[in-house]
Structure formats: structure tokens, C-alpha cells
């Protein structure tokens, strides 16, 4: 039993990391209906930029601020040069554009900062702490705490600020939002900038875990099943979906893996998400009921 709890907790904690990436997706999707495939590339770009700055002997705080500024600028540039010209196009077209964008960002990040693997030390010890019979790494706890804080902050932002209100209006009905005088391009630019900030946080935590390298950008692919499970437009869903996927992945690898030769972590999330889609296409917390084909 305690082994099962161990596996479950381990899965939940890695799920937190998935949620962090999924959050960036949800931000963009909620406000502009775009499935931003470049989110993973943005995670890589943010982490690489930060690491390279600290390696150039910049203090931690300065590097963080500079990276933050760069990510915000990047978000604005994307809105200006990719999304704006594609307004009113089908969601498939927009998706393909972000796929192209991910190639640009990945290529640029590595051309700029090199392709070697960087170590990233955030100063959070990765030592296990004993809770009853379960051992949890301090790093994982901090990551979970950061994720929780971000979700709380984002929820507050959406509920209480004027900009958040504008976000919700745009998400609800773009035409009506324009009619009452909201500027779509402003809202989108802010959303992309925010997604850049989320990417930075995810990039730092993932980077500290795995090392900052190209494979960071593939975490985007892990976030897709999370989104399907949680619903593309739900912040809470991103968290719950991430936790579920993490837990399912770990338990499947432990309990089913040995019978099929292991390596189930690569696909089990997709198959679960696929099965789930067939039963409930809008996800656990998704708003829009999907049109039946």
C-alpha cells in the first residue's frame, strides 16, 4: 500500500510540472482560441536565455528581470507579426502558424545561446523529506507551491482586475468585445506576454530538473493530453489534468510497464486522453461543448 502511495505521490508531483506548461496553453487558448504549439519552444527559449545570462555573471535577479522583459517582448512580437495578419483564419491555420513559430523560436534560441546542455541551479535543494512513510523532494514541494501560487494569481487576475475582465470578455465573444471598445490586439499581446512569463517559470523549474537543453521544448507534447483531460480553456483543469496525467503515467509504468517491456510513459497519456475525448469531448472542466461532427 505504501508503495502505491509512493508511486501516486511521485506521479502527482511530476504532474505539477506538466500543469505548469499547460497553464501557458490555457492562457492563450482562453483569450484567442489559438492552440499555441510554440509554448514548448518558449519554455526552452526562456530557460536558455536565463541560464546564459547567469553564466555571463549577471546576478540572479537581474537575469530574471531581463529574461522577463525579453519574454514579454517576444509575446508582443508574436502578436504583432504572426497573429495579427492571421486574424479570422481557421483554428487549423493558426495552429500550423504556431508550429512554424516553434521552429523559429527553437532555432533562434539555440543559434543565439548554443546547443550544449546547461545545468541550472535555483538554489532549491533536491533532497527527499520524510512525510510519514512517503518521501517527497523539497524541490517538488517548492514547484508545487509555485504552481499553486501562479494559479491563484492568475485566477485573481481574471476575476478582479480590469484587464482580466477584458480577457474574459474577449474569450466570451470577440465581436461583442470589439463592439464595447476593447482592443483585441492589446488583450492578445498581454495574453502572449503572460504566456511568456508562465513559460519562464516552467522553463526554470523544468530546466533545474532536466538541465536546460533542446528536449525542454518537447514538454509541450506532454501538455497536450493534459489539456485534453482538463479542458483547453480551464485553468483549474490544467492543474487537475496535469496531476491526473502524472499519476496515470507513473502508475501505468509501474504496474503495466513490466508486462509490455516498459517505456509506456511515451504514449499512455495520449491513449488515456484519446479514450477520454471519446466520452467527454470538452474535457473535465472545459466550457464549450464540442460540436458533434
Amino acid at each position: 500500500m505504501s508503495f502505491f502511495v509512493d508511486v501516486l505521490v511521485g506521479g502527482l508531483l511530476s504532474g505539477v510540472m506538466y500543469s505548469l506548461v499547460a497553464l501557458g496553453f490555457v492562457l492563450i487558448y482562453k483569450t484567442s482560441g489559438v492552440l499555441n504549439f510554440a509554448q514548448g519552444a518558449m519554455v526552452l527559449f526562456a530557460a536558455l536565455t536565463f541560464v546564459s545570462l547567469t553564466e555571463h555573471k549577471l546576478p540572479f535577479a537581474v537575469s530574471l528581470l531581463v529574461t522577463l522583459a525579453i519574454m514579454v517582448a517576444l509575446g508582443w512580437l508574436i502578436e504583432r507579426f504572426v497573429l495579427k495578419p492571421l486574424v479570422n483564419q481557421s483554428s487549423i491555420t493558426l495552429f500550423m502558424a504556431t508550429l512554424g513559430l516553434s521552429y523559429v523560436i527553437e532555432g533562434a534560441a539555440q543559434l543565439l545561446w548554443g546547443t550544449e546542455v546547461h545545468g541550472l541551479d535555483l538554489g532549491i535543494p533536491d533532497t527527499p523529506m520524510q512525510f510519514g512513510s512517503v518521501a517527497i523532494s523539497e524541490f517538488d514541494l517548492v514547484a508545487a507551491l509555485i504552481a499553486a501560487t501562479m494559479v491563484a494569481a492568475l485566477t485573481l487576475f481574471f476575476r478582479t482586475t480590469r484587464t482580466g475582465l477584458a480577457f474574459r470578455a474577449v474569450a466570451d465573444d470577440q465581436l461583442a468585445a470589439i463592439a464595447v471598445g476593447l482592443r483585441l490586439s492589446h488583450v492578445w499581446a498581454i495574453a502572449w506576454a503572460l504566456a511568456g512569463v508562465v513559460a519562464l517559470v516552467a522553463g526554470l523549474l523544468w530546466g533545474a530538473r532536466l538541465g536546460v537543453q533542446f528536449s525542454l521544448s518537447t514538454v509541450v507534447l506532454k501538455a497536450l493530453p493534459v489539456l485534453v483531460l482538463g479542458g483547453f480553456d480551464s485553468i483549474a483543469g490544467a492543474i487537475v489534468g496535469g496531476l491526473l496525467i502524472g499519476a496515470i503515467e507513473k502508475s501505468a509504468e509501474v504496474y503495466i510497464g513490466p508486462f509490455v517491456g516498459g517505456g509506456t510513459e511515451g504514449w499512455i497519456a495520449y491513449v488515456v486522453a484519446l479514450g477520454f475525448l471519446l466520452v467527454r469531448p470538452a474535457g473535465l472542466f472545459g466550457q464549450r461543448e464540442l460540436v458533434r461532427a
Binding site: 492552440l35 483554428s91 487549423i92 495552429f95 507534447l221 497536450l224 493530453p225 485534453v228 511515451g266 504514449w267 495520449y270 491513449v271 486522453a273 484519446l274 475525448l277 471519446l278 469531448p281 464540442l290 460540436v291 458533434r292 461532427a293
Partner: peptide
Amino acid sequence: PSLRLKGFYLLVSTLAAQYF
């Protein structure tokens, strides 16, 4: 799944194919 899903939800199905 395309019988029930549209647009980029289908992505997940084809990604599942790719990985599986």
C-alpha cells in the same frame, strides 16, 4: 475518433498514433 472530434482535438489522436 474523427467521427466525434474536430479540428485540433484530432491532433491528440494522431499524436497518439505517432507515439504508440
